[in-house]
């Protein structure tokens, strides 16, 4: 599918790279998002307000009092023509996750039964998955993590829960998510992380993850979970402690 520019009124347009969830499509979204950020850092693309990456498209917000669609689109097309692989500026993070039943892993038994593997294998498959943050949305800080091991792919639950606790780690289709806040939700709950996905005490750095990040989970005991949760209550985590140092 070729790249399409789609009209979104007079303050935004969408650059759509495809209609499915696929690495070759999302990497182009992230490449353009990064290229535009570099241009703006260099003082170009005046009137461009912000860009919002999603699974398969980049939404470009602009100020029609400063620029026009007719002026911006050719500039974006030029960036697309010079497209290169996304710079390796994304981070690799390892997030602690406690898979204890019954409090956290509410759907572990159900997922095991539906997928035909043991509960321990479900956990091991989740731990073995390398996830990529394709977008952050629906709620502030909610990461859509693509890359779930194939045997765990399941549709969403037939009846969503009215209340999913904050920091629940869940799966559905080819993805895993972490709920930033208590909210309704239809994903299968496998565990809980002591790391908040959106901690307002960090101000502008509130969101733990950003589009383009790579994430793995690390299994922790209930005792370690409790200790980390207590620590987070006193002061927000510095996200750097979950980020792999670059060689």
């Amino acid at each position: 599918m070729s790249t399409r520019f789609l009209d979104c009124g007079d303050t935004a347009f969408s650059v759509e790279f495809g209609s499915t969830i696929a690495p070759e499509i999302n990497s182009r979204v992230m490449a353009l998002h990064g290229a535009i950020a570099s241009e703006r850092a260099a003082g170009r693309l005046e009137g461009l307000v912000e860009t919002v990456p999603s699974m398969r498209a980049l939404l470009v917000h602009y100020d029609p009092l400063t620029t026009t669609r007719a002026a911006l689109q050719p500039a974006i097309e030029t960036l697309l023509a010079g497209e290169r692989a996304a710079e390796a500026r994304s981070r690799r993070l390892t997030l602690p996750c406690c898979y204890d039943e019954p409090e956290f892993a509410l759907d572990l038994a159900d997922v095991a039964q539906r997928t035909g593997v043991s509960e321990e294998e479900v956990i091991q498959l989740h731990l073995a998955s390398e996830f990529h943050v394709y977008m952050v949305g629906f709620m502030p800080g909610l990461p859509y993590l693509v890359g779930l091991a194939k045997p765990l792919h399941l549709p969403r639950r037939a009846s969503p829960r009215v209340r999913v606790p904050a920091r629940s780690v869940a799966i559905a289709t080819e993805m895993s998510v972490v709920y930033p806040f208590e909210s309704p939700g239809g994903w299968h709950l496998l565990g809980r992380t002591p790391v908040s996905m959106f901690d307002t005490r960090r101000g502008a750095e509130a969101s733990t993850l950003a589009p383009g990040d790579t994430v793995r989970f690390r299994r922790i005991s209930r005792a370690e979970y409790d200790a980390l949760e207590a620590e987070a209550e006193r002061a927000p985590f510095d996200i750097a402690r979950f980020v792999e140092a670059r060689p």
Binding site: C8, S19, P53, M55, L59, M135, G137, F138
Partner: peptide, 29 residues
């Protein structure tokens, strides 16, 4: 659709066929 970004004033039409205008507190996608 596979989720994409939402502009201010976007009018979405779920399966029920009735339009919903998305305003200041709209979700980002």
């Amino acid at each position: 659709i596979v989720s994409d970004g939402i502009a201010p004033g976007a009018i979405q039409v779920p399966a029920a066929g009735l339009p919903i205008a998305l305003l200041a507190d709209r979700q980002t996608a």
